[in-house]
Computed example of a mutant assay.
Amino acid sequence: MTAGSPGILTRLLAGMVLLFLALPVLIIFPLAFSNTGYLTFPPSGFSLRWMKEILTDPDWLASMWLSLRVAIAATVLAVVLSLSTAIALVRMHFGGKQLVYALILMPMIVPNIITALSMFFFFSASAVFSSVVAIIIGHAVIALPIATIILSATLQGMDRRLDWAAMSMGAGAVTILRRITLPLAAPGIISAAIFAFLSSFDELMIALFMAGNEAQTLPVRIWNSVQFQLSPAIAAVSVLLILISVAALVIANLFSKSR
């Protein structure tokens, strides 16, 4: 055993912790492919019945498409705002910077249900209440802190001498942003976008408070389905959510290694 490498006990404990965290997720997979009409573990047999049902049911498909549209719009809004915020926090000097940073991180600290309640009362007096627009804004607020953290770390790792060299050759702020900052920060921007997408796609509380009958995202429809029945279709939808999250995290990891 080399110096500094973990011992057998440490590896065993780490494996047990990982198994404890992964076991509830792994149990969902056999439930999603059960051949019975109710949730039971272990299943008596395996079938693609429930996976076919959610992929052909118009209500589930409508919720998936709505969640995808909301997540994409919220991601774009969150990334644009977080990039502007990160540039201001990293490259500009002004008073109260720590206070501004703390306010940006507030949605990450405050429980989502408090944020959802606040937005509920805020949008209740406006025309966009109970609409897709309200959900997009709420999800962008939730995604803003993590995107700002990622982009701030990305900008801090960039060499400012490149900007100064471009300025000495007559490049303006827009040219520097377009030709230097954005290309170098591209891996961080993509990572921030992926995490913002995941935080929106899986978010329940804000969508639950803001959604009306015409705007049920996928987590909201899962929540409503759980209240009335425990069908294996819910496990099938959960498997799709898990696969989407895993794929997004793998892509984010690949981009982080390319930085």
Rank of each mutant, 00 (worst) to 15 (best):
A166S: 04
N35L: 00
A140I: 06
I222F: 11
T181F: 00
G45R: 05
R160V: 14
L184I: 11
F122P: 11
K257T: 12
S84T: 13
W164H: 13
K52Q: 15
S67E: 08
W65A: 13
L26F: 00
R161L: 12
I142Q: 03
L208M: 01
G15D: 02
A125S: 11
L55D: 14
L117E: 05
K257P: 00
Q229K: 15
L254N: 14
P24K: 15
A22D: 00
L61S: 07
P24I: 13
G96W: 02
I189Y: 09
V76R: 12
F197L: 09
N35H: 01
D59F: 12
A14Q: 07
M64S: 08
L230T: 12
R178H: 11
L184W: 03
A215L: 08
T154R: 01
A247K: 12
P24Y: 07
F120H: 13
A235W: 04
S231T: 15
F197D: 03
L182N: 04
M1C: 10
A252T: 10
A22Y: 03
H139P: 01
A32V: 13
A88P: 12
G172A: 09
V25H: 12
R91M: 06
L144I: 02
G95C: 09
R91C: 06
L241T: 07
F20T: 09
V80S: 03
S238Q: 13
S124H: 05
M210Q: 13
L151P: 06
Q229W: 14
F228T: 15
V110F: 15
V133S: 14
S245P: 06
F41W: 15
A125N: 04
A196I: 10
I244E: 10
V70D: 00
V133L: 14
I206A: 06
A86G: 07
I251N: 10
E53V: 06
A186E: 05
L103C: 08
S124A: 10
I114Y: 11
T181G: 05
R11T: 05
F255S: 10
A14H: 05
V250W: 13
L240N: 06
I234H: 09
G172E: 12
L39N: 04
A143F: 00
P145D: 03
V239W: 11
L31K: 05
S118K: 05
T148Q: 01
L117T: 08
P145L: 09
I109G: 04
I242C: 13
